[in-house]
Design a binder for these strands. Structure first.
Length: 490
RNA sequence: CGGGGUGUGGCGCAGUUGGCUAGCGCGCUACGUUCGGGACGUAGAGGCCGUGUGUUCGAGUCACAUCACCCCGACCA
């Protein structure tokens, strides 16, 4: 009997469980909201990392690493920045423990108090700019294009597995430029990288645009973003790229000498994507049978399941299985043979579907006789029997098809769930049903706040590619020059 | 920090108006039969019922306290 899975809520844990668990940190409430990334989930992250890392390097960036700890005073330098992060910082106040008198426990040694507290980085702008100060003197030192792969900690009031954990992994790029124009171009270029990565690797269509002032990164002049739509109709901010102006350069006194000898503050960007992208991947594609992972980032492309009774039969099948495995591996396909003898094949099928392995190749005595194999697609759940000959080509084709199909499905979903709305009444009705809503807004923070308070919808972004159509704000009736994207979001 | 809910083997749960030896499903171990879509049988292992204090002849069950977790808000990638 097949297990029945009905509700979407059940699926969320169904989807996550293969990749990640909540950190089990016993009695300590302080670390709630951390996650353990299991090997399979981490392999997925590593694939995403590798692809992104290559894209960064192809656009002239290099990797570096900066400290986890940030002196408290650094955060105070940029007023808006500290305002934005102060409420969610973990602070190190002591550097030593000691055994309690009864010898049964440990406690903080009050004599080991730090003179200046250290902040566990919520993001690294401050410590990086403090370092850049020493790296930049002349226009010849620019542009400086660094990326860092790191963990960060944000003490959120409420956490949510993958989407908002207390600690998460990410990459953060921090660049310095000699002109405003060049910095803006950099921020835009990176947003393009993110969009490309989401589309071509994660198979997630995203809307690119700029954030409104109230949604902007603390300390940025402009925040560009990619916004994705999840299957439950909620929006997810999947990545951001910030034009920081000269804010951090001024805060950390980073000036450079130009060709003409004049001094000026450098122009900056910062940008990042995190393990939240894994959450996006899961929530954008998965179905009631479990995960659906795009081949480009899947830890495993194909599992070979030999169908056998008894050790003897397995032996006779394994020769062919190994041959196929080698052939596929030589073609660059990530493949595994599932020859566990304590599980029935049906169970294995279900398990690999749950884990989102794009292809499954079943091979039994019947195929042995016919010189065939059975290939099943995870995305469509369809099966076909094909000759063993030329299997690598067929598998490659299928992986490409799956990659495309997953994207097209997600794109179709987004298109079917994006609505143009012109009246606030319609808006209130539509927002309950989820999806992106494209509507006119008068450009004021007051209206934005009002809408948020009344409907819980936020402006996800002012999209780059929207028509510059004239219209009237759906709330105030004031003039608007383009539609913006509203949604409820994670 | 407000509002609601839950704590019982690894996981998911039941446990009556307090009652005797705390159950069930999944999973786990062993053996056997099975094996082309989540198998079955038999035999096992595994629990001071979140914690503390009380009420009682007797507490998983009642009271009070406390801790933790989940959901909904405020905050946020």
């Amino acid at each position: 009997m097949a297990k029945e899975v009905t509700s979407r809520a059940e699926n969320f844990s169904l989807w996550y469980n293969n990749l990640v668990t909540k950190a089990d940190l016993a009695e300590n409430s302080a670390v709630r909201g951390c996650m353990v990334i299991k090997p399979y989930g981490y392999a997925l992250w590593e694939n995403m990392q590798a692809a992104l890392d290559k894209m960064f390097k192809d656009t002239g960036h290099v990797n570096a690493y900066f400290p986890l700890f940030i002196p408290k005073s650094f955060l105070a330098r940029e007023a808006e920045h500290v305002e934005g992060f102060a409420k969610e910082c973990a602070v190190v106040t002591h550097y030593r423990l000691r055994t309690t008198k009864d010898g049964k426990n440990v406690e903080v040694d009050p004599d080991a108090k730090l003179e200046e507290e250290l902040i566990v980085r919520p993001t690294s702008e401050t410590i990086i700019w403090n370092t850049y100060k020493n790296w930049i003197q002349s226009y010849r030192d620019l542009p400086l294009l660094c990326n860092q792969w790191a963990n960060v900690v944000r003490w959120e009031m409420r956490t949510r597995l993958f989407l908002r954990t207390a600690e998460f992994l990410w990459q953060e790029g921090h660049t310095a430029h000699s002109t405003k124009q060049e910095a803006i171009e950099e921020a835009e270029k990176i947003l393009g990288v993110y969009e490309d990565f989401a589309r071509n690797h994660l198979a997630i269509p995203v809307i690119t645009g700029v954030k409104t002032a109230s949604e902007r990164f603390a300390g940025a002049v402009d925040t560009y973003c990619i916004e994705a739509l999840m299957q439950d109709g909620k929006a997810l901010q999947a990545g951001t790229s910030h034009f920081l102006g000269q804010n951090f350069a001024k805060a950390f006194d980073v000036q450079f000498a130009g060709k003409d000898g004049s001094l000026d503050y450098v122009w900056a960007t910062s940008w990042g994507v995190s393990t939240r992208l894994i959450g996006a991947l899961i929530m954008a594609h998965s179905d009631d049978n479990g995960l659906i992972l795009p081949p480009k980032v899947a830890p495993l492309h194909l599992v070979i399941v030999p169908l056998f009774k008894g050790e003897e039969e397995l032996k006779t099948l394994m020769e062919t299985c190994n041959r196929i495995k080698n052939e596929l591996q030589d073609a660059g396909i990530k493949v595994k043979i599932d020859d566990r003898d304590n599980l029935r094949s049906g169970f294995k099928f279900a398990e690999h579907e749950l884990k989102g392995v794009p292809l499954r190749l079943a091979f039994g005595p019947r195929d042995m006789q016919n010189g065939t194999v059975e290939i099943a697609r995870r995305d469509t759940l369809t099966k076909e029997t094909v000759p063993q000959e030329g299997i690598a080509v067929r598998v490659k084709d299928l992986l490409n098809e799956i990659q495309k199909n997953i994207y097209n499905k997600a794109l179709k979903f987004r298109e079917e769930n994006t609505f143009k709305v012109d009246s606030y009444d319609d808006f209130k009705v539509q927002i309950e049903k989820g999806g992106f809503i494209s509507a006119h807004w008068d450009g004021t923070a007051e209206t934005e706040t009002l809408i948020k308070e009344e409907t819980k919808a936020t402006i996800r972004c002012i999209p780059f590619d929207s028509d510059k159509e004239q219209g009237k704000c759906m709330v105030t009736g004031k003039a608007s020059s383009q539609r913006v994207i509203f949604a409820r979001s994670y």
